[in-house]
């Protein structure tokens, strides 16, 4: 069983990606052994009508997913009526996971609106995915250079919301080691491996953070899905740790919602 917690539907704004058609995406996920995929939408990064984005995400998951895709709603607290979007994610779509892109949406994690969003997410018992980046900053489109999210304020906020469930996505390459360790220690923050780099990356990450805080994520279809799968092979993990990362931790997190 493999749960991929970092998958995207729709189109990356700057390039067509192989498998960015939902039927092809699902076919490739299944062929790669993925049994469950948490699917957000690239449209959530730049679109303003997020109610429509989230509805399409759910429809694609239902139409093409055949039980494989679990929809993830996009929330932008800089837009009017963002709380309505959260309400609809829960009431209309039965979503358990929301995804944030603070750098593309124009706020920082010490902005009061993020604290408000987190409080509401705790009330609604959402898993909150925070994407720290979408692409290597060195290769951004020249007219759209977006700095990585600074996760420094997160520790204090999480301590104020002890029931929060946060999953950092696209963050393992740029997140400083000490920040990674302090966030993992809160017990409320997890991470996924798509942007984890260096030889033996997964086994070395587990020298810093507990296995319970590390999940399998591919960032497919932006990244070749084989990258995350091979990382699990490059590290010597044993069956207990492999199973936890591949599926157990995601399953537990979802069961808590």
């Amino acid at each position: 069983m493999i749960t991929d917690v970092n998958v995207n539907l729709s189109r990356w704004p700057f390039r067509r990606l192989p498998h960015d058609d939902p039927a092809q995406l699902v076919r490739k996920l299944r062929a790669s052994g993925i049994t469950s995929a948490w699917a957000g939408s690239f449209d959530g990064v730049l679109h303003k009508d997020l109610a429509s984005v989230n509805r399409r995400t759910v429809e694609d998951c239902q139409t093409f997913g055949d039980g494989l895709l679990i929809p993830v709603g996009s929330i932008n607290p800089m837009l009017p009526a963002w709380k309505d979007d959260m309400q609809r994610c829960q009431d209309d779509h039965g979503m358990q996971i929301i995804r944030l892109n603070p750098n593309y949406h124009g706020y920082k994690l010490d902005d009061p609106v993020f604290a408000e969003l987190l409080g509401l997410a705790v009330e609604k018992n959402f898993i909150v995915q925070i994407a720290l980046k979408m692409e290597d900053e060195r290769v951004h489109h020249p007219l759209m250079q977006v700095e990585m999210v600074d996760a420094t304020p997160l520790k204090e906020l999480v301590e104020q919301h002890p029931k929060s469930k946060i999953l950092i996505i696209n963050g393992m390459k740029g997140l400083p080691k000490d920040r990674l360790i302090e966030l993992a220690k809160t017990g409320n923050v997890s991470f996924e491996i798509s942007m984890l780099e260096a030889v033996g990356g997964v086994e070395n990450a587990l020298k810093l953070i507990p296995v319970e805080t590390l999940l399998f994520g591919s960032y497919f279809p932006f990244f070749y899905i084989e990258s995350a799968l091979l990382k699990m092979q490059e590290s010597e993990l044993g069956s207990f740790r492999s199973n936890a990362i591949f599926n157990g931790n995601a399953k537990r997190l979802l069961a808590e919602t």
């Binding site: 780099e197 260096a198 033996g200 990244f223 070749y224 990258s227 091979l230």
Partner: peptide, 14 residues
């Protein structure tokens, strides 16, 4: 070792 074998082999395997 700054990169992994995995992420780079994936470019070809995938």
């Amino acid at each position: 070792g700054g990169r992994s074998f995995s992420s780079q082999l994936a470019k070809v395997f995938g």
